[in-house]
Design a protein around this nucleic acid. Structure first.
Length: 132
DNA sequence: ATTCTTACA
DNA sequence: TGTAAGCA
């Protein structure tokens, strides 16, 4: 998991990222404003992007080219973050289960944790995320 | 030489 | 989004 550290290392300045992504500095800064990326800064306040930043920018670009607007991009990125967090939580729950299971067996109890379902995208509502 | 922020088109 | 001004 040390690879993640590398992918988050602040490496390239704006000029390089514009070459790598074919995006304009204006667009990149705007996406940052929208909270889609969080590049670190140098002591001189200049942005330093990581591989993850570049990857995310490419994904943003891809979505935008498909006609997805900022709201839609945010939705997708938020969703993937939630999926990652959900996966981590699943692992967490699995570990907790082994401990709790012992107590349950001893106490012969049955606890069923329930969770409110996630929001689903309704077809009609989807149009909100595209340009007209 | 480059990038940054802010503001206006 | 593009562009220009004024800084760092």
């Amino acid at each position: 998991m040390r690879d993640q550290i590398r992918r988050n290392m602040p490496l390239f300045p704006m000029r390089i990222v514009t070459k790598l992504t074919e995006l304009t500095p204006r667009q990149i800064r705007y996406y940052e404003q929208q909270g889609l990326i969080s590049p670190s800064r140098t002591s001189g306040n200049q942005r330093l992007f990581s591989f993850n930043d570049v990857d995310r920018l490419l994904e943003i670009k891809s979505l935008m080219e498909k006609g997805v607007n900022i709201a839609g991009v945010k939705e997708v990125l938020l969703k993937s973050q939630q999926v990652l967090e959900a996966k981590k939580e699943v692992e967490k729950v699995k570990q907790e289960m082994s401990e709790q299971e012992l107590r349950r067996m001893l106490k012969q109890q049955l606890i069923i944790p329930s969770r409110p379902g996630q929001t689903h995208l309704i077809h009609g509502e989807l149009s909100r995320f595209f340009r007209h």
